[in-house]
Design a protein around this nucleic acid. Structure first.
Lengths: 334, 334
DNA sequence: CTGTTAGCGCATTCAC
DNA sequence: GTGAATGCGCTAACAG
């Protein structure tokens, strides 16, 4: 039925070792034999069995990637960066959504490891002790991607979320805003939630403004929750003059809530956020936001992983990529 | 180093066959021995090697999916549908971007098949004879996902793109529009390009309007090209009163070009498209569009694949999912 | 440059 | 219920 390396060997009149050599591009084969083998391969329609190869060589040329949600544009851009570089180094990726749920994350890490991936890219929510525990059972390298862990010194690549948020709020401050509302993510989320809130706080406190509870509300990162929270802010006796949203989607929701209330952005209210999702420049007014280099986060972490899998020594295994504030149309001087 | 089934057998004082049985949930094991084995597994930190298992059983519990571009929100939603169902049936997915490039598609199909996936989901551009050729070498089932092929009777799931486009243009017609411009995709693309153009054509011709060359322009599916093409339409001596765009992104680009020229949507010009991408409802005016059930396309095709892999007999292996016109705010009566 | 020989870690007969 | 034996298809020494 299925044609194996042995069939090819017989057909070409050589040993299976020789076939293996030509298939693996081993130079120690006489050009003529190589030719014979290729012909036999062609004739038989031989296709190497990567599973058998993996068992024998202990390498699968596939890496696992656990991601929160591939249908979220932020993560899908990271994924594209990962896949492009993986492809370049002849790796394939097994993609698993884990929705930032701890149990699901732990489970997929284990199945990925069972599948003998050569390395693992982890993009998740909080890195708990259980995660660390699971990571420790791995004999292959793991790098955190868009996720940082304080408790463990693991290879990682991410931006500095605290500082990105700080920069965003500073821009508002420089534009004369004093009463700045924040649409935050959950504080349980270390990167997109907690760190961004901390950046907001630091920027305000630095200029002597105390963070006011009534000006910080938690959303769920999505458009609708941006709308909801904004309605709340609009109902305040003393409205904020500017809004800092933890994500672009919530910012866009906020903009629409503002517009629907009859006010204008940025003339009446300024809005800024962090992400630079694709749609940030596809809405009017175009969103002023702090750009996170999604594609690069994926690409760089995959590149780092290849080095690790290759046992190359890497100078810096915890890399922080730069962010950049993109001034577009949603922020104005007060 | 790595602990194998053999180590567990020794530790538990049983044979490796027994360990294999408990790991695979074979009921023919005395509860007591099962317990012993589990304890040994725990003690040793044994993790089954899926590669070895795959070689022995000829099943890998992973399916390959070739997709045009995971960073495109349309496809990433399909991917999520695929992964959710795959997960439900305990499959993992190897994800490969192929950008609708024939050569890349053929290449990844082959590497996926080498990796002994149990099945393949193909989402691509045109299905050429070369594709068919590659598919024929496969011993595992393949289903086309969001892609149809006329030449071959392969399992597939998709919407009827021609009819979706037809419905969109009909809505325009019913609103009194007679001069309708189309921002098309390339006619080489059977589904998003050619079929949608055909639907446009049929709707017009049905009411006795001849398709005019100056009213059909080719874009590349992206926002920017929607802007470009719209500028062209706006420069026409006799402007169209409505625009049908082959994708939401181009439609949104068109809307902004219209607005930038000082006109209003839908008061001065109506815009409709096909897709219902996430951002369609996140722009103002909200986009009227024909919804394609992306998630379901992925989910249904994966479900179909599981049946095929399971050698179940399936009644209909070529399924057409329904589309739905979503009347929002971008179309008005002329 | 080429062939021989062992496994890789497990599922799966087939006996007992 | 359980164990022994065999082979899945290939790579990797090791000889020659």
């Amino acid at each position: 039925m299925t044609v194996t390396i042995y069939d090819v060997a017989r057909e070409a009149g050589v040993s299976m070792a020789t076939v293996s050599r030509v298939v693996n591009n081993n130079p120690n084969v006489k050009p003529q034999t190589r030719k014979k083998v290729f012909e036999a391969i062609e004739r038989l329609g031989y296709r190497p069995n990567a599973v058998a190869r993996g068992l024998a060589s202990k390498k699968t040329t596939t890496v696992g990637v656990v991601i929160p949600d591939i249908s979220n544009s932020i993560f899908s851009e990271v994924a594209r960066g990962i896949e492009d570089i993986a492809n370049m180094y002849h790796y394939n990726i097994i993609l698993c959504n884990a929705d930032k749920k701890k149990d699901k994350e732990i489970r997929v890490i284990n199945t990925l490891l069972e599948k003998q991936v050569d390395g693992l890219l982890f993009m998740g929510g909080t890195v708990t002790d259980e995660h660390i525990q699971a990571f420790k059972t791995s004999s292959v390298p793991i790098v955190l991607c868009g996720t940082t862990s304080d408790n463990a010194a693991m290879p990682s690549v991410d931006i500095d979320h605290e500082s990105a948020a700080y920069d965003a709020v500073q821009l508002l401050l420089r534009n004369g805003h004093r009463r700045i509302g924040m649409i935050s993510g959950t504080l349980q989320d270390p990167a997109n939630g907690y760190a961004r809130y901390q950046g907001y706080k630091r920027a305000l406190e630095e200029v002597g403004i105390a963070v006011s509870d009534e000006l910080v509300r938690i959303g769920n990162y999505r458009y609708e929750s941006g709308v909801e929270v904004m309605k709340y802010f609009l109902g305040l006796a003393e409205k904020p003059s500017a809004i800092f949203a933890a994500t672009d989607e919530m910012a866009i929701g906020a903009i629409h809530a503002i517009q629907d209330s009859g006010l204008r952005v940025p003339e009446d209210l300024s809005v800024i956020s962090v992400d630079n999702a694709r749609m940030a420049s596809m809405v009017r007014p175009q969103l002023t936001t702090v750009a996170q280099p999604m594609y690069d986060i994926g690409a760089v972490s995959m590149r780092l992983l290849t080095k690790l899998m290759n046992k190359e020594t890497v100078e810096m295994s915890q890399v922080t990529l730069p962010h950049e504030v993109l001034s577009r149309q949603s922020v104005a001087h007060v």
